[in-house]
Write a protein that binds this DNA or RNA. Structure first.
Length: 187
DNA sequence: CATGGGATTGACT
DNA sequence: GTCAATCCCATGC
């Protein structure tokens, strides 16, 4: 699969979050189309990067086009694509996929049958793809996880925007994007 | 060194 | 609708 170049990520995070909708994410022959994203930026308190550069946030402040993976609620691995210039802490959380390849592998990893339940949440899709904490910092342009451009059929889909989910600060920013009428978005 | 919170999920009432 | 699981990391003593 042809991959998005680093320049794609080296732009304002909200723009990248919107444009990642419809793109394909792939790991080890398992793949899906991104149908839901959220943007996070160090200027607003919902972002992990808001506290500044620490051991945890180092990947966020690093070069764009890398993967930021962290553990949520002690249980789940959540995946983000790092954006903007090095030194700015900004990333796009991948929140849901429409499964494409390796659906049987996803079912085995998730222990579930329904296709709509495999990747319809940020913790679910990491498990379905087989991506864990050890992937923090890998380069999306050359590493084991790849993101490619929108297939032709996905170039015209309607994208909606609204408030982000599951946060307690900056709750009104409309920085969540999703495909209208998709059965594969979270919730 | 101890503590507290969290960008979630699945099970249960 | 409610709620617990579970662990990494930042912070404070």
């Amino acid at each position: 699969m042809r991959r998005l170049a680093q320049g794609f990520y080296a732009r304002p995070v909200v723009e990248v979050a919107r444009e990642l909708i419809g793109c394909v994410i792939e790991h080890d022959h398992v793949s899906g189309v991104i149908v839901e994203t959220e943007a996070y930026h160090d200027s607003e308190p919902a972002s992990h990067a808001f506290i500044g550069l620490t051991l945890r946030t180092a990947t966020l402040f690093g070069p764009p086009g890398r993967l930021y993976v962290y553990r949520s609620y002690g249980i789940h691995a959540l995946m983000n694509a790092v954006t903007e210039a090095e030194g700015v802490g900004a990333a796009v959380l991948i929140r849901a996929l429409e499964p494409v390849d390796g659906i049987e592998i996803m079912r085995r990893r998730r222990g579930l049958e329904r296709v709509e339940d495999l990747c319809s949440g940020p913790g679910k899709l990491s498990q379905a793809l087989g991506v864990g904490l050890s992937y923090n910092g890998v380069d999306l342009a050359s590493g084991p996880v790849a993101i490619g451009p929108r297939p032709r059929a996905w170039r015209q889909v309607q994208i909606l925007a609204g408030p982000r989910i599951g946060i307690t600060k900056a709750v009104t920013l409309p920085w969540r994007f999703w495909v209208a009428n998709s059965r594969f978005v979270s919730r």
